[in-house]
Nucleic acid binder design. Structure first.
Lengths: 208, 208
DNA sequence: GCAAAAATACCTGTATTCAGGTATATTAAT
DNA sequence: ATTAATATACCTGAATACAGGTATTTTTGC
């Protein structure tokens, strides 16, 4: 049921953290965490993982050299490289070894999970640089410059799943006022669809 | 700028993993990871964290006893207990010490972050048992059992931000047909608000 | 103090969604 | 072969959201 994963990363904190993140997602079973890449090939030969996550920067045997080895495995696993610097040249170097994905360590865990799901379903995911954010920086601090205090309050209330009507009730405002605020928010943030708006609403953190 | 956090958990894997998760969120700065709860009180007295995350099950000095100590700190920090078993009786025991939240270790990292954001803005969050998943398991495989092939196609199209009208065009269907499918989807998945639906749409993976 | 920004409220018309139906042809299951 | 499920399509009315206005009061910055 769950995808059997082997993690190869000398940096134990990240190895452990990633392990936890993958386990938490509910889709992955970590069958091994390997801290010394020199053991990876033999271990994978025995464990037959469906997915191997390999760090790029490792001592003794780096990601590139390891992938070269792993591709000679009889049992074909998906191989994903995780790197500190999502460099274009780095990716180029991997091209000939037919890896299934290339992810950056700066990617939020949710996006890592998303990417891995895509990869497990056959897609290839290459993240060059940090993905350009949607429209503007989605963090609260840049948002504060754009929106007024009241507009943020409206968003907070909408975040609870309220309709404009319900927001009006909660904040003791007229329905028309709430609608006006929403109109202004939409103008400022220029959403292309309802989905875009609600997606934004879901993602954004609006706390102090 | 970032919330200063101290983690208290003897289980280093979880401590490290949680640390990573908090850091990744961008809102938290981990100023200490404490593995022996007996050091927590003195450390917090020096470090003055805004948020203290405490594990429930710890050797020597367990979560309850530690919280009792921490509440005597001059500098008042938010205190959140994280437990393996989100037991109702456990929470009861904490009630008199006025903790700000009680979270389960089974909670996905994104939900932990969400909960902590709420807590930092003054709310209290008590998660008893693992929260009943949003109606059903949000993964594709359990979804397939609930929805028909066509319904999934409709969702895929909606995921692009299309309106029912546009979905109809893309799939060469009548607008009415698309609306019917959406109606059936909504019935099956029982969303409580538009926000819930679009949030689901954003989260779900619909690939093969 | 004055001008700008923000917050409030209202109106209109349209677009979109949602919930309640009905109905038929095709497909899958037993 | 005959149910049951699926996909299709249409209708209506209500609820919600969106886009275009206008307008008044309050707050804030200089």
């Amino acid at each position: 049921m769950k995808t059997k994963v082997v993690l190869v990363d000398d940096h134990s904190l990240f190895n452990d953290g990633l392990s936890l993140i993958l386990k938490e997602s509910g889709y992955y079973e970590i069958i091994a965490q390997i801290y010394d890449s020199r053991n990876a090939y033999s271990q994978c030969n025995v464990l037959l993982p469906e997915l191997i996550l390999v760090d790029y920067n490792m001592p003794f045997l780096d990601g590139l050299a390891l992938v070269k080895q792993l591709r000679t495995l009889v049992h074909q696993s998906k191989i994903v490289v995780i790197s500190m610097y999502a460099d274009k040249r780095e990716i180029e170097a991997f091209k000939e070894y037919e890896i299934d994905g290339y992810l950056s360590k700066t990617t939020p865990s949710t996006k890592i999970i998303e990417a891995l799901q895509k990869i497990m379903s056959g897609e290839k995911v290459f993240q060059i640089k940090q993905e350009p954010k949607s429209n503007f920086d989605k963090d609260f601090f840049s948002l504060k410059k754009l929106l007024t205090k009241r507009e943020v309050e409206i968003l907070k209330s909408l975040k609870k799943g309220y309709t404009s009507e319900q927001v009006a009730q909660e904040l003791c405002l007229s329905y028309y006022t709430v609608e006006t605020h929403r109109k202004n928010i939409n103008q400022k943030l220029k959403f292309n669809s309802k989905k875009d708006f609600y997606e934004f609403l879901d993602t954004i953190e609006l706390e102090k």
